[in-house]
């Protein structure tokens, strides 16, 4: 896949995949059953497929580095690409439900690796339904950051259970995040912003970052600028609503 001889889906001028060949349906139903392969458990996630330069063989090495950042519903992958160089030592993965979008991100990362030898080896993407299969990818406390940027709003009340942030799903995110780990959410839909904040605020295992903490966190600045959706909102001068919370110990 690395050599892209006259591949019409790759732009000749930039060497990057052209988005129009990867256009997909705007929304997928996260409730439907999947037909893509799911690892039975986190130890079956093959790191050598995702990070071949860092993991030349698929044999598991004890104490080897694990994925620490997850960008859930990563879309076209802009955030991963910004984070890759900001945290070059950290392994990260994007999780995306739409197969064409996932393919696009894969090609994009491969092209960046070719164009920038030695770089972008720490990011990858997987096609999955994060709402069903998060525990199949990450062990307890494995993650230090989770991102939910501009998730689908699912306005209708009866579709609220499709929202990627909910009290019950936060239980699972709290399981995957180590104590001190941070969950970043942002949206341009006010109602959804309030919903996400309310879910996090009332959850016993999450606590809001203080204003000072938000100001010094370099990642917070990326929330509005790094992703395709964020850039679109910024271009249109739209307002955004963010909620950034830390995983805390349960109080006794």
């Amino acid at each position: 896949m690395l050599e892209n001889k006259a591949n019409p889906t790759i732009s000749k001028s930039t060497g990057l995949p052209r988005k129009r060949f990867y256009r997909a349906r705007a929304h997928s139903n996260p409730l439907s059953d999947s037909h893509f392969p799911i690892p039975i458990s986190p130890c079956q996630v093959d790191y050598s497929l995702h990070y071949p330069q860092l993991f030349p063989s698929s044999d598991k090495i004890d104490g080897a580095k694990k994925i620490q950042f997850a960008d859930v519903g990563c879309g076209f992958g802009g955030l991963l690409i910004s984070l890759s160089t900001l945290f070059p030592e950290t392994l990260m993965i994007g999780m995306e439900l739409r197969d064409k979008v996932t393919e696009y991100v894969k090609e994009r990362i491969l092209a960046l690796r070719v164009g920038n030898p030695g770089q972008y080896q720490n990011i990858s993407v997987v096609r999955t339904n994060s709402m069903k299969y998060i525990p199949n990818y990450f062990e307890k406390g494995q993650l230090s950051k989770m991102f939910f940027l501009f998730p689908d709003p699912h306005f209708k009340e009866k579709n609220h259970r499709r929202r990627v942030i909910s009290t019950h799903l936060l239980d699972e995110y709290a399981y995957c995040l180590g104590v001190g780990g941070i969950i970043y959410t942002i949206t341009d839909v006010e109602e959804l912003g309030e919903w996400m904040k309310a879910c996090l605020e009332s959850h016993p295992l999450f606590e809001a970052l203080t204003k000072e903490e938000l100001e010094v966190d370099p990642v917070v600045k990326l929330l509005t600028s790094a992703t395709e959706e964020g850039q679109k909102v910024a271009r249109n001068g739209g307002q955004t609503f963010q909620a950034v919370y830390r995983r805390v110990m349960p109080s006794l």
């Binding site: 039975i40 458990s41 986190p42 525990p135 199949n136 307890k140 009290t167 936060l170 239980d171 699972e172 709290a174 399981y175 959850h203 016993p204 295992l205 349960p250």
Partner: peptide, 22 residues
């Protein structure tokens, strides 16, 4: 999942997942 003293407030602390069945 940990069954707390006040389960009516919800069970939020997952102790483990037992994964292996296919």
């Amino acid at each position: 999942t940990v069954f707390p003293k006040k389960p009516l407030d919800g069970l939020h602390e997952i102790q483990s997942f037992c994964l292996g069945h296919t």
